[in-house]
Design a binder for these strands. Structure first.
Lengths: 351, 351
DNA sequence: AGGTACTGTGGGAGCGCTCCCACAAGTGAT
DNA sequence: ATCACTTGTGGGAGCGCTCCCACAGTACCT
């Protein structure tokens, strides 16, 4: 069977060297062909490609990783227990986006959960070993040490939802400000005059931006500012209910509520029900996320949709660029390292 | 900062060599300590461990993989589109089991979807490059070429649900025969006399075993065999409805149905409703899988539960053993390469 | 004619490990 | 005292690749 010499000391797979011998060229040339270098003549390239096909050559990833000091893999790190990952469509949408963007790439995607302390320690080891070329970070809490660890290890990373306006990592986010504005403007257009806001957790940057959008929309429409119409929530259902009750006690004349998340809105709905207010006749309600909850609520909830899959795609884009640009060690500016995507208001019966 | 010599040509991570210098021993000795070889004196071991800690040494995976010809990674291959993966709790349970078993291991788990043709071609490349030490295969169709590819590449693999009684791959399965028996025996105990069976896809081995269990349970209880009570389904809802309609036309006197899956049972329920039969008063109904459907059906469906998470754990066990045993190239027998786990009947209002 | 530049190519060096052979030192039987 | 093991250790060779330098060949200027 074997025609040349060399071949399989241990019946193993063909190596670069063997392909080179078969094609009658040098090792370097085969490497260039494999890696798509333009500095190869057409004739040589064809010969090498023929040899590769005949031998069924597949590059040895470990050898490549060792020699080139890269792994051709990136990780999607989910700092949550697996349970939440499967429960929330957010992650599967994100994963789809990432996968789509990676599909015509040689990059391998690793999915890493870091919900427990134990898992987080494992992850730290993993990153310290530089087993991935870059990291996609989703759903990161403000006090998470992970981003700093990444920065310290000089591992390219992209975060979804910057932790603050001064976020140092490259980031992709949806337009929380604009999303909130569109929700409030919608309520104003519906004729609402006293629009309240139940916020998200105040240490989450996106929640702050939603407050800003809420305020500015009211101001620009000539509504007077009334801070009593703002009540802090925490993205939970119970927090939403509590905030709603407080708001009703303080401002019984409110006629609309913009909640910082669908879950919060579900809580608010409960609070409204308890107070005997009808939705939307007495009080209009708008949520945020356009999750399954929104579609299944009674009445169906108007909500702000974020382009999660698109976010996944853009994050991947950014990360790949980051990785590519790292190779020649040029330090680029920060332009285009922050992407903000438009949201869309989905109108339903609750407003 | 640096105390010895060597260290970071390019500000990089410490290497084995540097740890060796620091500890005042040879490269080989450090390697032995890192890999937990017993042939190291306690004093030396301590010195090396100190040096490792001081330097913050982390082994270079690529170098190790190249030298040792292993990757320390296994793949969970899901021959389905991602959508189904997220939709069905089967996979998340399985993943939990695998993860649990791997958690005190150095093994890295890769999740690979191979739903589309394109993805399958990618996977073939991936496997050909030997980028994983072993493969966990779930939800494989009878005509899938993947198992044979794996065998040909001599990659250790474990399959959940053997393709036939002659399955060559190591396998873990739930006791389809026993599960079916328990369902039918339950119906008999409930006083049912004319028990029908809607099968799964006949090219699925597990479906065959369920038919066997159904037949034997009836025979052992002294019920006469009546092949007219068996109708082929295909695991789909529509298939279940169709089969139910056919059964009712053929045997109007049936008083119970054992469906090969919960989805099939849902279809059967529809067929029964259309025929004006009440569940369970007129006809008792039992499904298989104990999925979310079973709990949410009206009436709640009695169903056979499979220990999915446990299956994930056992598969991982088997695979790790397979991989470990491969190293000294000893070819073991086939004993203990097939695991069958007990099922449990969950009784609800439908029977 | 000589210089300068670019293109295409071969192959040495080296990435950081594991494997294994060699060998020193210790232990106990002869 | 000799031999035969055993235990612990050092370090050479080599895994299969990429990177890069060297160099032949050609093209185009002076």
């Amino acid at each position: 069977m074997a025609s040349h010499g060399a071949r399989g000391r241990s019946g193993g797979r063909p190596t670069l060297e063997e392909v080179a011998a078969r094609a009658g060229v040098g090792r370097g040339t085969v490497s260039r062909v494999i890696n798509g270098s333009p500095r190869v003549s057409d004739a040589t390239r064809a010969a090498v490609e023929a040899a590769v096909a005949e031998l069924g050559y597949v590059p040895n990833t470990a050898a490549r990783a060792l020699a080139a000091n890269r792994t051709d893999a990136i990780a999607l790190v989910v700092p949550e227990p697996e349970t939440r990952f499967f429960a929330e469509p957010y992650f599967s949408d994100m994963l789809r986006g990432v996968g789509a963007e990676l599909s015509d790439t040689e990059m391998q995607l690793l999915l890493i959960f870091a919900g427990s302390d134990r898992e987080r320690r494992r992850l730290a080891q993993y990153l310290a070993a530089h087993r991935v070329d870059g990291v996609l970070l989703v759903s990161v809490h403000a006090d998470d040490p992970l981003p700093d660890l990444l920065a310290q290890l000089e591992i390219p990373a992209v975060i979804s939802g910057p932790r603050s306006a001064e976020e140092t990592l490259a980031s992709v986010d949806s337009d929380n400000y604009g999303g909130a504005r569109s929700a409030v403007e919608h309520l104003i257009a519906r004729g609402c005059r006293r629009i309240a806001h139940i916020t998200g957790r105040l240490d989450v940057y996106g929640a702050q931006r939603r407050i800003d959008g809420y305020r500015d929309a009211l101001r620009d429409a000539g509504h007077g500012a009334d801070e009593r119409l703002i009540e802090a929530g925490d993205f939970t259902e119970e927090g939403g209910r509590r905030a709603m009750t407080a708001l009703l006690a303080r401002c019984p004349d409110l006629d609309a509520v913009f909640a910082a998340s669908d879950v919060t809105a579900a809580g608010a709905r409960q609070g409204l029900r308890e107070a005997g207010r009808r939705i939307p006749e007495d009080v209009a309600l708008v949520g945020y996320d356009d999750s399954a909850i929104a579609r299944h609520m009674d009445p169906p909830l108007t909500s702000v949709r974020q382009p999660i899959e698109e976010m996944g795609r853009r994050m991947t884009d950014l990360l790949l660029a980051e990785i590519a640009d790292r190779r020649p060690a040029v330090s680029r500016g920060l332009e285009r390292r922050r992407v903000v995507l438009a949201t869309k208001l989905v109108e339903r019966a609750s407003s």
